[in-house]
Design a protein around this nucleic acid. Structure first.
Lengths: 240, 240
DNA sequence: CCTTTCAGTGAACATCCGTGCACTGAAAGA
DNA sequence: TCTTTCAGTGCACGGATGTTCACTGAAAGG
């Protein structure tokens, strides 16, 4: 072990006395013993993504600061570029994982009983569960859907339209909707998606996450969905 | 119109020859001949509001810059404080006038025939017209509803809930809904508000304002509303 | 008339920002 | 073993930001 000749102020073990950098909980640079270079890089990448999701609870993506981001991820600003070429690219990565969460939701709903009677209640319950563990993802989607960063807004809308199409094919299999056309399914699916994203966005808002109001929103979502279902039941398909 | 954003690189030596003051279209400091002090102040205030609405086409309120704002309003940064104590206060003023626009919408719909048959088409047409003249207001509402600035988000949601209540009392007078309870009316009204704000937000997006896609969104909104109306027609009020 | 009010000015400040650059040191690979 | 790769460092820069302060000059008002 050599004493550093030049100013390498904080290498690994000078942590406790570190005077001027308050690193966060998100990324420990504590040595994980056997860790390949790839694993280490992946861990830092995760730390950046988590730091972003954390910071996005308070602001829109447009006012995200690269410096704050890296500070709370435990790395130096310039190191960010080893993982993403630009901030927007980070945003697109968040779009990806947010929609993976969203797809996980319908996947979970599909599992087991597709009994049309309990479907709404089950969906809302699953949504509620996902909101506990992945609130940041839902907040991100519903905020950036109308957000100020064109690249993200377009990406979110594109993914939402794919998701909606996926939902439409699910709906096509339901009793009573067998002879609906694509246009009819689109109307119904977009209705459900709008309601869900809207309600989710309301529920994950920092100002509105008291359990009481959350129950209210859930209940209203259930009622809205029921009214739509009644509408679908009495619907005359668009081709006259 | 709008100045290219985000690019910090081009500033190097392509700056215009004007020393340090390039005023905008928004506010002329050209002397208007007979103008009281009050009128002049009001004119500047309007210039600030307009500059904000202009800038908000590209970003969320959270990343609004006071300096850019005042620059395009034709005043010096510090003069801003003669009109608003803080940026949030500016935002609240925008909330006010945006919702005045929104109320103007239902007022216009109400005028003349409330024939239940043509009501949806008429509403969508009026909305479409308002979007041409007041797109910035609708963009503001639908963006800041989920936006990153708590004060504005709460204000927008509060106003939306008032608006929804107002709509509910209108609906209560419609044939077939006479014996609905407040809860039922709330479900239907919130459904309409969500659909409208969502569709409006999609239509006023900088990326989505081609007339073609806009017609599509309008048509989808009409269909969604129709399906909801069918649902309302077959609805059994919540008190069993 | 003279005094007060006050919207707008301009300079100065401390702070944050994104990014280019040359670097280090350990892991990967030969 | 020696060489290459590359995630992360530290520094420096130019520029944009919000806010302070003392000021100016014309309108308002007595």
């Amino acid at each position: 072990m050599t004493v550093p000749t030049r100013n390498h102020l904080f290498t690994q073990h000078s942590r406790p006395a570190s005077p001027d950098r308050y690193t966060s909980l998100v990324a420990q640079k504590d040595e994980a013993p056997g860790e390949s270079r790839r694993e280490r890089k992946e861990r830092t990448r995760r730390a950046i993504l988590d730091a972003a999701l954390d910071q996005l609870a308070d602001t829109g993506f447009g006012s995200l600061s690269l410096r704050q981001l890296t500070r709370s991820a435990g790395i130096v600003p310039t190191a960010f570029y080893r993982h993403f070429a630009t901030l927007d690219e980070l945003g697109l990565a968040l779009v990806d994982e947010s929609f993976e969460t969203l797809r996980g939701l319908i996947r979970e709903v599909r599992q087991g009983d597709p009994a049309p009677e309990t479907l709404i209640d089950r969906s809302v319950d699953v949504l509620s569960g996902q909101l506990d563990t992945h609130s940041a993802h839902f907040r991100f989607i519903s905020r950036e859907r109308q957000g100020g960063v064109p690249a993200l807004r377009d990406a979110v809308r594109h993914e939402l339209s794919l998701f909606e199409r996926e939902l439409a094919t699910d709906l096509a299999r339901m009793p009573g909707l067998e002879k609906w056309g694509a246009a009819d399914l689109h109307v119904l699916a977009s209705l459900f998606v709008d309601l869900m994203v809207g309600a989710a966005g309301e529920m994950v808002s920092p100002s509105t996450d008291h359990p009481a109001t959350r129950r209210e929103i859930e209940q209203n979502l259930r009622n809205q969905a029921r009214m739509v279902v009644v509408g679908a039941t009495g619907w005359t398909p668009l081709g006259s």
